[in-house]
Design a protein around this nucleic acid. Structure first.
Length: 584
DNA sequence: GCCGTTTTCGGCCCGACTGTTTTCAGTCG
């Protein structure tokens, strides 16, 4: 059983324990362990073999035992018994906004309700009203929640949520009395998908801000409106929270609501160790100790907040509650890559295959981005659904690109490449003799997704060992919120890539973001070279590289870890030397 | 269930909002 699956089961245990009304801290311990396992950067099997599970944060003797059982036996009797004791519909009930474990248990104990349909019926019959702690409004809210269940529980791509959030922030900043307005939450942490939008605002006239926010045209429903917090649902189902804070409180609130929850816990613990209490309200002497609230510490930026706690500034992308606080304590943070570091990109399509813009248009697009070069990599013949090209057609493209460069039709230099399909048996889709003519080759899987992990890994590694392979395209093939990636042992692929001097792409298409940020820190330390590629199918798509920067930053990558931060001359030389070295 | 420079028990982050109450529980983030 892999890390992801084990983490999922541990998370389920947490939910089940809460539904049973067990000690919430016991339940939370499982959640913490789930996070640790999910974020583990090394091979779980190794850790187990070396008996190092209990060294991991939040994992003690008992959980280590359970994780080991799951890993070896692919099942856990404790989990199976627990699961059997919970009615099947409880998980779905939990999806209804406003319904938590306690209420679900109460409704079940009193009325035997264990499904959404039964709950809906009971609400309509007014049966819930009679229960202690329930009333007319609770019933109405539950009914509304059920009606929009699918829509409300939907997650969103970072790219889309971010566009909406930035628009609202722009509007807020236009309000005269607003002094600060920022996006917080998982958007600021640049997570790949987003549940809802969190905004933090400081303003002189708070009531006015709340009135403006709850009445913007995109709002479908005002869920809550208070003096310091309002929540709205936009058309399309996205939820937006706005919190109003004082000027002094702003950076504490921004930090707190940027999260993650796990990061905040670590920060509070760090504060407590210094006899300080940290919250969204501020930082001051611990409650109960001398002068609570009396001598609050003031900060004018998040940097100062970290500094007061003896920490180096932790970029929002790294606040996932992994080891960032420990590293910040030591004061040794890498300088993360930035958008401006990118000098060109390699994986792009044109009208020759399934792109929407021509070679010239894409090259001029690169000019507008201020880049020095752009690589064109249209599909190979097996990808007929994407208008893939055969050797002859690709050769024509190659000549066109050479002419383009000779005539200097764009400021940016155009590299000749291809996104070459990896066939089922691991061979490449184009003749070796032709691949040698190109500047670089992106190798990707676009078909036969249903191989088992062993076969798929073997297939990918065989492609990596091909002397012409330069870059691995979207390594798992996942489509966020749409399709799981194919089964593949990414750690083995990483090792093979390093051994064969093949680079790994961060496919920056907002729907892919593949290879996932969780792998990068360790992989880069081992020596894996990264390329951030927008996989652009039109000029606008070139802008996706920014989503790739998010992934790179979340993966602790610096400019040096990313190939396309190098200038044209250096890139030309590297690709030339590489070919000579590998005979590709 | 985990954890320990207040260590092997007794904590475990904490506050706003809602809807239910009449001082609070549950949910959410």
């Amino acid at each position: 059983m892999d890390k992801q699956q084990i983490a999922e089961i541990l998370e389920n245990i947490q939910v089940f324990l809460e539904l049973k009304g067990e000690n919430v801290f016991r339940a939370r311990a499982y959640q913490r362990a789930a996070r640790t396992i999910e974020g583990l950067e090394e091979d779980l099997g190794e850790v187990i073999k070396e008996g190092r599970l209990t060294d991991l944060p939040g994992i003690g003797k008992d959980l280590a035992q359970k994780i080991e059982t799951l890993y070896n036996d692919k099942r856990l009797p404790f989990y199976e018994e627990l699961k059997a004791s919970i009615p099947g519909g409880f998980l779905e009930l939990l999806e209804i906004p406003g319904l938590g474990p306690k209420k679900i248990k109460a409704v079940y104990d009193a009325l035997g309700i264990k499904s959404v349909t039964a709950l809906e019926k009971a609400c309509k019959e007014g049966k819930l009203e009679a229960l202690v702690g329930f009333g007319k409004k609770t019933e109405e809210n539950i009914l509304r929640g059920i009606a929009h269940l699918a829509e409300y529980s939907k997650r969103h791509l970072w790219w889309e949520a971010n566009e909406i959030a930035e628009e609202i922030v722009k509007g807020l900043k236009r309000i005269k009395s607003v002094t600060h307005a920022e996006v917080a939450g998982s958007i600021r942490r640049k997570r790949e998908t987003i549940g809802d939008i969190d905004l933090i605002v400081a303003a002189k006239n708070g009531a006015h801000v709340m009135d403006w926010f709850t009445s913007i045209p995109e709002v479908e429903e005002v869920i809550g409106k208070g003096e310091t917090k309002s929540t709205v649902r936009l058309k399309g189902g996205m939820q937006v929270d706005l919190r109003l804070v004082s000027e002094d409180q702003f950076y504490f609130a921004l930090h707190h609501f940027t999260g993650s929850k796990e990061h905040n816990v670590m920060m509070r613990q760090k504060a407590l160790a210094m006899d300080l209490s940290l919250s969204e309200w501020g930082l001051g002497p611990e409650k109960g100790k001398a002068g609570h609230l009396a001598d609050k510490i003031k900060v004018k930026s998040e940097e100062e907040l970290f500094k007061v706690l003896g920490l180096k500034y932790i970029p929002a992308e790294l606040r996932e509650g992994l080891d960032e606080v420990t590293v910040a304590e030591k004061g040794k943070f890498p300088k993360l890559i930035e958008e401006d570091d990118i000098r060109g990109v390699f994986h792009n399509h044109t009208t020759a295959s399934d792109g929407r813009n021509t070679l010239e248009e894409m090259a001029r697009g690169a000019d507008e981005m201020g880049w020095e070069y752009i690589g064109i990599s249209d599909h190979s013949k097996s990808s007929f659904q994407a208008g893939g090209l055969d050797e002859e057609q690709l050769h024509k493209e190659l000549l066109k690109i050479q002419k383009h460069n000779e005539k200097k039709l764009s400021k940016s230099y155009v590299f000749t490449g291809v996104e070459c399909d990896i066939l089922k048996n691991g061979e490449l889709d184009l003749k070796d003799s032709f691949l040698k003519e190109l500047d670089y080759v992106v190798v990707s899987i676009h078909s036969v997704f249903n191989l088992d992990e062993k076969e798929m890994t073997k297939r990918m590694i065989k492609a990596i060992e091909h002397p012409s392979a330069t870059i691995i395209g979207h390594v798992t093939g996942r489509l966020l919120l749409q399709r799981e990636g194919y089964k593949i042992d990414v750690l083995k692929v990483i090792d093979a890539a390093i051994a064969n001097e093949v680079m790994m792409e961060i496919n920056a298409n907002p729907r892919r973001l593949d290879m996932d940020w969780r792998y990068w820190k360790k992989a880069a330390e081992k020596g894996l070279m990264c390329v951030i590629n927008p996989d652009a199918h039109n000029v606008k798509g070139l802008g996706y590289y920014k989503a790739g920067i998010n992934v790179a930053r979340k993966g602790w990558l610096t400019k040096e870890n990313v190939f396309n931060t190098r200038g044209l001359k250096e890139v030309k030389k590297y690709l030339f030397d590489l070919k000579k070295r590998k005979g590709g």
